[in-house]
Design a binder for these strands. Structure first.
Length: 137
DNA sequence: GCCAACGTTGGC
DNA sequence: GCCAACGTTGGC
């Protein structure tokens, strides 16, 4: 079981939208590092849904329901997509600002490499954020 | 809206 | 295969 963090601009695709639609295809990733992370995901893995540009906070949890397949928005198999569903929203959203201030989270990829749109989260980081957010898994 | 950080492209 | 030029992302 691995943990992830996926970023989206809420203008383009928000956690609310995913929740309304039930499930979503995470496509359009055009970065190799991010793609490799998509390909490493297993069905049943959980990920944080982070709003970039606006909000700058983790808003909820999603679950990977289908492992990597060729990105339908691209001809060929160079890029990959996955399928996700809303797992549950966080009771309390966790902002980037808080993350930067929290011991144990200062080395998160989100902080160290803010441009990577699909990134791994360690179990320790995951647990801290879940705890802070007061969310029951 | 600016700009730093990073990735990609293409000429040599 | 190097690296300058350019494009994109995302925090501020």
């Amino acid at each position: 079981m691995s943990y992830w963090l996926l970023k989206s601009e809420p203008d383009v695709y928000s956690f609310d939208k995913l929740t309304k639609e039930g499930k979503g295809v995470w496509d359009g990733v055009r970065n190799y590092q991010a793609r490799n992370n998509l390909r490493a995901m297993k069905e049943g893995d959980l990920g944080f849904f982070y709003h970039s540009n606006e909000g700058l906070e983790i808003v909820g949890i999603l679950e990977i329901t289908k492992e990597a397949f060729p990105d339908p928005t691209f001809e060929g198999d160079r890029w990959s997509a996955i399928e996700v569903v809303t797992y549950k929203p966080l009771n309390k959203r966790i902002s980037l600002e808080e993350i930067k201030k929290t011991k144990g989270l200062e080395n998160m990829v989100l902080v160290k490499n803010s441009r990577l749109s699909v990134q791994p989260v360690t179990k320790a980081e995951w647990n801290i954020i879940i705890e802070m957010s007061g969310t029951d898994i």
